[in-house]
Nucleic acid binder design. Sequence first.
DNA 1: TTGATATCATTTGCATACGAATGAATTTCC
DNA 2: GGAAATTCATTCGTATGCAAATGATATCAA
Lengths: 151, 151
Amino acid sequence: MSGGELKLVEAEEPEEHDYLLQEQVGFILRKAHQRHVSIFAAHIGDLTPPQFAALAKLRDVGETSQNQLGTLIAMDAATVKGVIDRLKARGLVELSKHEVDKRRLLVNLTAEGRDAIERLIPLAREITRETLAPLSAKEIATFTKLLAKLA
Amino acid sequence: MSGGELKLVEAEEPEEHDYLLQEQVGFILRKAHQRHVSIFAAHIGDLTPPQFAALAKLRDVGETSQNQLGTLIAMDAATVKGVIDRLKARGLVELSKHEVDKRRLLVNLTAEGRDAIERLIPLAREITRETLAPLSAKEIATFTKLLAKLA
DNA sequence: TTGATATCATTTGCATACGAATGAATTTCC
DNA sequence: GGAAATTCATTCGTATGCAAATGATATCAA
């Protein structure tokens, strides 16, 4: 009977597993993110992706509260504080108190910060290009659309 | 002349930017990863994704050196050390010295670690399912294939 | 065989990332 | 108006993640 034979074959490969880490989205997502960060670092060595995100968003929206900025770039309050502290220490952003709502800490680009982000944006375009380089133009469109659905 | 009118319209929207952070792969990749980690934590609260990855891979390959394990789960030597230290402190893995090559530190699951990973794998399946829930079956196949190309 | 290289692991330093606790200020609602 | 709930920000603790330096061991090659 084939049932008996199958059992014999299985006994010869007891290490067969039905759960493969390499196939789980979470694991691949983590690796893809790692690769992107590595590409980023190769092009922009003196700024991290979160720091760049903060500057780029401030360029978009102008002065905002630290918390609001955090929401816009998907960082919780504790994380965004550290990022802004470091940008402030480097003179790329400046902080001020909100006149009306005394809880709020306003963040804005300095002249130097504005120069920096304008200078870095072409490099950021290249980083995006290089990150997506393994895909064709059509695949890029598909991938970006699906990824956005998951984010 | 329409050229003049266009200039006027542009002058009314001086904040127009040609670089949008929300559209960059790196930024969306980071958000998608964040969402996955959040889903993971909701299902498996007492283990992080990297810790789970280490256990799952040890289940796959059996005893290996710490460095080799790091390669298999995409972690550098410094990071994997911290992960293994914590798993060892919780009794889920055990360490031993390689008999021949004295540089190597062998890592293996304990009985408790094996029980834990077997128990967690069904939850991990559900985590993968929930992470991909915004996509249809066909989209999942496409997305996974493209994501793997980027990782 | 020995000197140069390479590999394995550890440590240090820095930068996210987030939960939880805290305090200050504001808003809501009765 | 005032208590309760909410919002903004900070701090603490824990856990990745990686570069760089270091030390121990192993391998390679002249």
